[in-house]
Amino acid sequence: MVNLDDDYLTELKHSFFIPSPPDLLTQAQAICQSDDPDLSLLADLIGKDLGLSSAVLKTINSPMFGMTRSISDARQAVMMLGLDSTTTILAAVLLKQAFKGKSAISFERLWEEATDVAEMMVYIGSRIKDTIPQENLYTTGLFHDCGIAAMAMKFHDSYLDCIKAANSDNEESLALYEDQYYNTSHPVVGFLVANTWRLPTDICHVILNHHNLEYLSYNDDVSENLLLAVLKLADNIQMQIKFSKDDHHWQAYKQQYFEQLGIGEYDYLDIYEELIEIRMQS
């Protein structure tokens, strides 16, 4: 695992725009952590904001979630998903609204691509033997590159050059180039955002280590390893769809991801084809 001491994290937090958790999310988390959590309180909280309620419903009614019937209101969503699941999805929805200001990139495009990965992760999770909470898959996919938004705001004059340099290199990742340019990277900054928003620990650790190629070889937390392996599959499928090429180091590490998820090459190819079909139909 990447080691981050408190002094370094404090310095980063002061030098980057790290959005505070929205009040609505803080209230939702307080309801979940109370001695006698009330589902109706959370439903009422979400239902007060029509735009937010619609965004939550749109997320869980996505074809990737595979709901047997359409969920039509916030109360129904909370009753079906439960407190923790609803709050985790709420954090993912609110993230898209949190970054505003001068930036080297389009936030709209960043969240569109992150949403694609998040939805693919949910679908992949439904195709493997291990059970991973859908909300954790979705939130990991949406948050995993959120550090890019903060990097793009802080380094708005040069960050696009860093991205272009990384995109022209078929061997090394954006995170490596960020370290060379700025002595930090989007996985580290993204971890800081996720930790500030009090996301589950396993999601925070996956965000921090999603460019750490050796993580699966020494990490013994099964939930983290499953999330990371699903993320790597989704990232590679998105790379294939967008650029018709594999993600960095995919060929060298794909077997490790397959073994973690209990699938083989043909299973992966089936999932890839199914996702292409779903995207064409939606």
Rank of each mutant, 00 (worst) to 15 (best):
I163F: 00
V78I: 01
L192T: 13
V117R: 03
H186K: 02
I128T: 06
S168I: 00
E119N: 13
H156K: 10
C162G: 11
S103P: 05
I124R: 04
G101F: 06
L137V: 01
G125Y: 05
L95M: 07
N136Y: 05
A98R: 10
T184A: 11
I148N: 10
I163Q: 00
I132P: 01
A74S: 12
M153D: 01
R75F: 14
E108L: 06
M80T: 00
Y123F: 14
L137N: 12
M151L: 06
I148Q: 08
T184S: 13
M153V: 00
D145I: 04
N183C: 09
T115R: 12
T87P: 05
V93E: 07
A92G: 12
A104L: 10
G147V: 03
A91C: 04
M79D: 14
M153I: 06
D116A: 15
E171G: 11
F191R: 12
Q76C: 10
P187R: 08
S72C: 14
D84I: 12
A152N: 03
T184D: 09
I71Q: 08
L160R: 07
L94T: 12
V117A: 08
A92S: 13
I132R: 02
S185F: 08
G141S: 03
Q180I: 11
I124N: 05
T88I: 10
P133M: 00
Q180N: 10
V117F: 04
S72Q: 12
S185C: 13
A165G: 03
C162Q: 05
G101S: 14
R127I: 01
M79Q: 15
R75N: 15
Y182A: 08
A165R: 10
E172C: 09
E135T: 02
N170V: 00
Y123C: 04
D73H: 15
D84W: 03
K100M: 07
Y138A: 05
I148R: 14
F107C: 07
G190N: 06
R75S: 15
D161C: 03
A118D: 05
A74G: 06
Q180P: 07
L110G: 06
A104D: 00
A150H: 04
M121C: 14
L160D: 09
N167Y: 01
R109D: 10
L81G: 01
M79E: 15
T140P: 02
D157Q: 01
A74F: 04
V122S: 11
K164N: 12
Q134R: 13
D116S: 12
E171A: 15
T131K: 15
N170M: 12
A114K: 06
L142C: 06
D130E: 14
I148L: 05
T115A: 09
I105F: 11
G125R: 02
T115P: 02
K164C: 06
V188P: 03
H156P: 00
I71T: 13
A118F: 08
L176I: 14
N136Q: 14
I163S: 02
E108I: 04
A194C: 11
A91P: 01
L174Q: 09
E172N: 15
Y182S: 08
A114V: 07
Y181E: 05
V193D: 06
L90H: 07
E108W: 02
L110R: 13
